[in-house]
Computed example of a mutant assay.
Amino acid sequence: MPTTYRVGLIGCGRMGATIDDEVKSGPNAQLFLPYSHAAAIVACERMELVAVCDPIEEKAERIRDRYGAQRAYADYREMIERENLDVVSIATRPGPHAEQVIFAAEAGVKGIYCEKSLCNAVHEMDAMLQACTPRGVKFNYGTQRRYAALYRDARAMIERGDLGEVQAVVANCGISVAQWGHTHAADMMLFFALDSEAEFAQGTVQAEAADWEGDRLTIDPRISNGYVQFKNGIHSYLVGAPGWEFEISGTEGTLRTLSNGMGYSLRQKDEHGELRPVGAPEAIIESGTLRGMEDIVRAIDEDGDTQGNLTLACRSQELIFAIVESHRQGGARVALPLENRALSIAPDHY
């Protein structure tokens, strides 16, 4: 009989447990639900939500009751030490992510699902990798699109050559804050660039010199534009046009995801070299959060890799840091990996 994995949730706020309430009656709710960590864990047949944790004890108890967990804690360390957890799901703000991930890994958990943004500082990524990699922790990052079928099917079209040689990825994601919003955009830029390492990044953010305290940016700045040159030759652009649509262009065609994941359009070159609409595969609409949880189960079962592993999570998070550092340097190219590992985006409330 397949193993059911014991899961503990750290953080009983919006992404941890309640965001489903915001979207369930809205348009296109099927894109998201189950959306929160708790809802996705409960929906995953091979997971059992056995405990939840939040420093606000009343909130933890309320979420324990809502999702049928056995116990509620105020201290995540106590929860991990007592509950013999297989998987920890982290849904706090990014400030404590590194210490939570490291503690869980050192305690012997098999899997971690961690909400974005990954962390507030470059050196925190390094510490998380050092804790998780040698222990074989199966890690998925909370950038849900990369787990959903529509985006994975789009990636499969790219990989089998439907577009020819990919030249550019354009993320039409609007002007939004770096850590809170554009961690999603950065991960899709990476994903559609076939998860390649990056050579350098450039960008413009809405931050002033007075917002810096040494290497710490004290605000989460809005990104106006960004550019990444990947080592596999793909150019990727983050632009101010809204819509959460991603366009991938190659030598033989162009693919664009539509309306934040409700479908896609595909155009391919005809015999005259003109781009013409062609039929694209059916768009499957599903919860990325649930698929991310299921992927952790699969990886633990098979002792395989996850689709949003920690190396990729660090790679996409570092794009955000690099764009911010480029702005600080007057728009200069910033080589990756970053030389300055002390750089942080860390408002007081993050």
Rank of each mutant, 00 (worst) to 15 (best):
D220Q: 11
L266F: 10
A51R: 10
W244Q: 10
D86M: 02
G308H: 09
H123E: 15
A209E: 15
D126V: 15
S25A: 07
A210S: 15
Q167P: 00
L343F: 14
R267E: 15
P27T: 14
E294N: 15
G304K: 13
V109L: 01
E115M: 03
L258W: 14
G214M: 05
G279W: 07
D126H: 13
I56S: 00
E197Y: 01
Q30Y: 01
G253K: 05
L336G: 05
I345G: 00
R93C: 08
V122P: 11
S316V: 07
G68C: 03
H97S: 02
I80N: 00
R46Q: 15
I234N: 09
Q167T: 07
L33H: 07
S316M: 03
G11C: 09
Y73H: 09
T257W: 04
V324F: 01
Y113D: 12
D305P: 06
N140H: 01
I102H: 10
V169P: 10
I284D: 05
A60L: 05
R216W: 01
T4K: 13
E286N: 14
V87C: 02
G288V: 06
C173A: 08
Y227K: 12
W244G: 02
Y147V: 12
K116M: 12
M262C: 07
Q307D: 08
E247P: 04
G8V: 08
I56T: 15
R135V: 05
A313G: 08
T251Q: 08
I300F: 02
D270L: 10
L336P: 13
D65F: 05
F191N: 02
A107V: 12
H349G: 00
V278H: 04
T257L: 09
L217D: 06
C12N: 11
G26L: 14
G136L: 11
D153H: 11
